[in-house]
Amino acid sequence: MSDLAIAAKGLRKSYGDKTVLDGIDLAVPEGTIFSLLGPNGAGKTTTVQILSTLITAGGGHARVAGHDLATEPQAVRAAIGVTGQFSAVDGLITGAENMRLMADLHHLGKQEGQRVTARLLERFDLVEAANRPASTYSGGMKRRLDIAMTLVGSPRVIFLDEPTTGLDPRSRHTMWQIIRELVTTGVTVFLTTQYLEEADELAHRIAVLNNGTIAAEGTPDDLKRLIPGGHVRLRFTDPGAYRAAAAALTAATGDETAQTLHVPHDGTQRDLHTLLTRLDAAGITADELTVHTPDLDDVFFALTDAPATSADAPANGAAPTKETVR
């Protein structure tokens, strides 16, 4: 237990009748990046809010940086840094003033405060903008200032709630670089995201959160093994060709009204070649052929389909898949 930065058991939270977290367990080793992956409304932000002492859990218990959340919240607060989903900067004052505010609240001396804030402004490329009100910053600059403010107190555990949502691709890559650098200094990063690619890129371990429960947990490779590969999509305009193809490709699932076939595919050249050979042999020509690699949708289909059809109401299974589309 001692080398776990975050250890949670059976965390629950509900608002009225709505259960947001339905008993989740987490174990995050020190010095690693842990990613909580899930669609909107899965409970990611609620998890961060509980672990960062912003709200109290409805059940279960957790230790963060070795301190109990319920009994020693101030000790937890002294060890953590939080960058929320909505930028936690004071828009009315300048970037430099925001940094100084953090230095004062961490009780750094005047000189040390100036040294730390100057170094962080430099590191996050905010020197030029330092004397402008933070409300005039772009999205990417606000996130950088946000993280710079989080780092003033040298936290051992850092929570980043969807740090790249709404950023352009360049800012996103800058943010990824920042997150990778954080962990080289031995801190633990707890990151939430709705992008599989991001979790894959950064995290040592990933937990998939769906409807308030952990649907799967493991290394990125573990998780990818759970994804049922990709598929090849064939579209036809001639109903005869569609029927012939459906008969020839027994593994395919079809949609008669859309005249399309989905053929399971593992992403290899050999597999694609086999498929094309079989189509040629049967004398079938599709009007359109597209190769789909696994994405977050596939992970959620794979991880949430089974319980949705067996036990839960269908609405529960449908909600997350619908949300991942946007």
Binding site: S52, L54, V82, A88, T150
Partner: peptide, 13 residues
């Protein structure tokens, strides 16, 4: 309504 208040709440102040 500002995010900074959430930050204050999670700080040891």
């Amino acid at each position: 309504t500002e995010g900074i208040i959430a930050r204050f709440r999670t700080m040891n102040i």
